Amino acid sequence: METGLKNRVAIVAASSQGIGKATALAFAAEGAHLALCARQQGPLEAVAREAAERFGIQTFTVAFDVSDDSAVRSFVQAAHQKLGRVDVCVTNAGGPPAKPFLSTTMEEWERAWQLNLRSIVSFAQAVLPYMQQQKWGRIVTLTSYTVKQPVPELVLSNSIRAGVMGLVRSLAGQFGPEGITVNNVGPGFTSTDRSVEILEKRAAAKGISFEQAEHDLMQDIPVRRMATPEEVAAAIVWLASAPAASITGQTLLVDGGSYRGL
Rank of each mutant, 00 (worst) to 15 (best):
residue 3 T to P: 00
residue 3 T to I: 05
residue 10 A to N: 10
residue 10 A to F: 09
residue 11 I to M: 07
residue 26 A to W: 00
residue 29 A to P: 07
residue 30 E to H: 10
residue 37 C to I: 03
residue 50 E to M: 09
residue 51 A to N: 04
residue 58 Q to F: 10
residue 59 T to A: 02
residue 60 F to C: 05
residue 66 V to Y: 00
residue 67 S to T: 00
residue 70 S to I: 02
residue 74 S to F: 12
residue 76 V to G: 04
residue 78 A to S: 14
residue 85 R to C: 08
residue 89 C to K: 04
residue 91 T to I: 09
residue 92 N to I: 11
residue 95 G to D: 08
residue 97 P to A: 12
residue 100 P to D: 07
residue 101 F to P: 02
residue 105 T to Q: 01
residue 110 E to R: 10
residue 110 E to I: 05
residue 111 R to D: 12
residue 112 A to Y: 02
residue 114 Q to Y: 05
residue 115 L to A: 03
residue 116 N to M: 08
residue 118 R to M: 13
residue 122 S to W: 11
residue 124 A to R: 03
residue 129 P to D: 01
residue 134 Q to F: 15
residue 146 T to K: 05
residue 147 V to F: 06
residue 153 E to G: 13
residue 156 L to T: 08
residue 164 V to D: 01
residue 165 M to Q: 12
residue 177 P to T: 06
residue 182 V to I: 12
residue 188 G to L: 14
residue 189 F to W: 07
residue 193 D to N: 14
residue 194 R to K: 12
residue 197 E to D: 14
residue 211 E to M: 07
residue 214 E to A: 09
residue 220 D to H: 12
residue 221 I to S: 07
residue 222 P to I: 06
residue 226 M to K: 15
residue 227 A to I: 06
residue 228 T to L: 15
residue 237 V to G: 04
residue 238 W to D: 01
residue 241 S to D: 02
residue 244 A to D: 01
residue 250 Q to A: 14
residue 255 D to C: 05
residue 258 S to T: 14
